[in-house]
Every structure is written in C-alpha cells, then in structure tokens.
Amino acid sequence: MSARDSILARLRATSIAETPPLPDVKTWFDAHRRNEDTDQRVTRLRAALQAVKTEVHDVSATDWIEVLLRIAASKDLRNLLIGTGTTHGAELEARQPENLKLLPYADAIDSWRDVLFDDIDASLTLARSAIAEIGSLILWPNASEPRLMSLVPSVHFVLLDVATIHSDFHSAITTEGWKDGLPTNALLICGPSKTADIQQTLAYGAHGPRELVVLLRHAANADQGAAA
C-alpha cells in the first residue's frame, strides 16, 4: 500500500461519533461588520497602515504622478521598476520623468535576477483592493506586474483606488469571488517587511521592502460606488 493509501486508510478507520455542522463564518462576520462609507473605510485603513510604518499619501487621478516623483526625489531614488501594459505605467512613461529612470519588468526574471536584487531602488504596482479592518493591501500579481515587484526592491509604491476598499477580509473574499478563481499568487500586504527576532526589538526591512508607500487615489467624483 502506498503512503497515501495507508494514511487515508488509517484516517478512515476512525469513525467520528458526531459530525459537526459546516461552521457559519458568514453570520459571524456579518454580525461584526461595521456599517461604514468609503471615507470611514479610508480612515480606518490609513490608521492601520500607518500603525505599521506604512507611508500613506492622498492623491488624485491627476496629481498622483507628481506626488510619486516628489517622494522618489526625497528618497534619492535613481530608478523605478514598473509593470508592462498597465494604464498607470503608461501614464508614468508619458510624463517622462527626468530624475527617475523607469524600468519596465519586460523579461522573465531568470535572465536578470542579479539586476533586480542589486540595482533596483524601487517599484510601483497597483493594488487590486484593500481591507480596512486589518489595514491590508490586496495584490494579485500577474504577467504585467509580476510577484517579485512587491518583494525585492527596497521601496515599494502601491497605487490604491479608494473605491476598492473592503470592510474586512471575509467580504473581500466573497464579493470578489476568490473561490472561483485564484491567481498563481495572491497577497495581503500591510507594511514594510519586519522582524522582532532579535530580543523582541522591532526592526523594519527584514527581507522584503524597507519602505511601503501607499498612494491613496481618490476619484474626481468622490461619490463613486464603493465595494461592499
């Protein structure tokens, strides 16, 4: 008998006296969910992000690039890794910044791994959405904005549209229908990487980004429909 069959046979040999019902997760979250509008969600998200040393800047559809360039200059960033075939990437390229070299993630990592690890200062990706309750950004990396963009560069910029902010993790999963199709990798990120492994002393910049900069992009028409 294979290891698999032996393990399953041993488990099946046990009869479970009482089969518990399917836990009602939805009811619990529904009962604990706050009834709040987009502004309140933004407030909660911002506070939670800032509590773990994430920089948060309010931007609009028209000024986000200038804000980003200003922050990049203040941090002495030489270059910025951007995705390919994205609207925000195209907008940034059209602006042709003088002091920040834009580097598109054009090729598979295998051919330029050392460049990514050694020579890239920062990256910009778009968040799919966010979660107010736990102050987390949701990223679904793909071929346009691959996984390592949010991990290897020391400074990570995230553009987030405020209309996409969910109240809690459960509503994010259910309203976005995650169970019907997850990408290769989905991520929740709440701040720069950190560790307290040396004498419980908190230190930022463990293995991932040292700084996380969120650009909260407000729509021109502030009353756009919010996510549940």
């Binding site: 090729d107 598979a108 691959p146 929740l188 990120i189 709440c190 950190k194």
Partner: peptide
C-alpha cells in the same frame, strides 16, 4: 505583514 496565497507554479507568460 504578509499573507501569501499560492495556488500554482509559474504559468506560461508569467515572468517569475
């Protein structure tokens, strides 16, 4: 800081 959900290896066209 991170919650990482992995549902497969690199798909054709993905870069990492």
């Amino acid at each position: 800081t991170y919650f990482n959900l992995i549902s497969g290896p690199r798909k054709p066209g993905e870069k990492d």
